[in-house]
Design a protein around this nucleic acid. Structure first.
Lengths: 133, 133
DNA sequence: ATGCCATCTGTAGCGACTACAGACTCAAGC
DNA sequence: GCTTGAGTCTGTAGTCGCTACAGATGGCAT
């Protein structure tokens, strides 16, 4: 069986999640408090799965609260697919809004850098842009 | 003259910057501590300009440390244009990297939502994607 | 016995604000 | 003169998602 007990360091290695972060997730109730072998936390295969889930959801930009919700929905079987979809769709809107924001920044910055390189402006084009809109 | 003394509320209104944030900027030394009229902070036209500068730089995504640097360079005259350009160019790289990150998220999310809408998968496609990569 | 690494708990720090509580100042209305 | 209300003051603590310690144990190899 692949389900032998591992320590926190091994869990960290398998999931790519920092040890301090794992303990943090436990503290805030995102990961369950595992049994102890002596004083050391003892994890099993389920924990590797759950933590991997958390990490991938985080990589998609879900907040920890959203991850918590996703975990709940994942546990509640397939009836919840619509709810998962809605959560994802609303998060997708967030992501798109942030992309739009960043693209606006990008345009302005790129324009200023170009103006700087052109060197027409008597002062500094970016400073100029920041001082008066 | 447009340089009459205004209170913090008016400064807030003119710059669109939260009152608490203005005091925060003063605490961390980004804005100078203004003179007082009685106990109340008394600002002038320069402060409106400086705070506007800060706010616009923040809108372009510069960190407060970068803003501090930009303020220093802005004060030091036009010799510093090259330095400003470098700061902006390096920040532009950051912004582009973040856009790339978000676009990756967007692709995955949009794909999952689509898969959900298609409804082929027996389980939930997003949950599925999160559980196994 | 001695190293040495891993793990433990608990606390504080980051960035950039934001949100109070509880005191005060000031001008206007009655 | 007295009250009311809006504005301002200081100081502290909370947010999010970690990250970084300090200082104490645990367990194994030499």
């Amino acid at each position: 069986m692949a389900d032998q007990a591992i320590q926190i360091g091994e869990l960290s290695r398998r999931t790519g999640c920092n040890i301090e972060t794992i303990r943090y997730y436990e503290r805030i109730g995102l990961m369950p408090a595992p049994p102890r072998r002596g004083r050391y936390r003892s994890y099993g295969g389920e924990d590797v799965g759950r933590l991997g889930f958390v990490r991938r959801a985080r990589e998609l930009g879900f907040t920890l609260d959203e991850v918590r919700a996703l975990l709940g929905l994942a546990a509640s079987g397939q009836a919840s697919c619509a709810e998962v979809r809605d959560l994802a769709a609303s998060h997708l809107q967030d992501v798109r809004a942030r992309i739009a924001d960043l693209k606006r920044m990008e345009r302005v910055l790129a324009g200023s850098v170009r103006a700087c390189d052109a060197g027409q402006d008597p002062g500094c084009p970016l400073i100029h842009a920041l001082y008066a809109v």
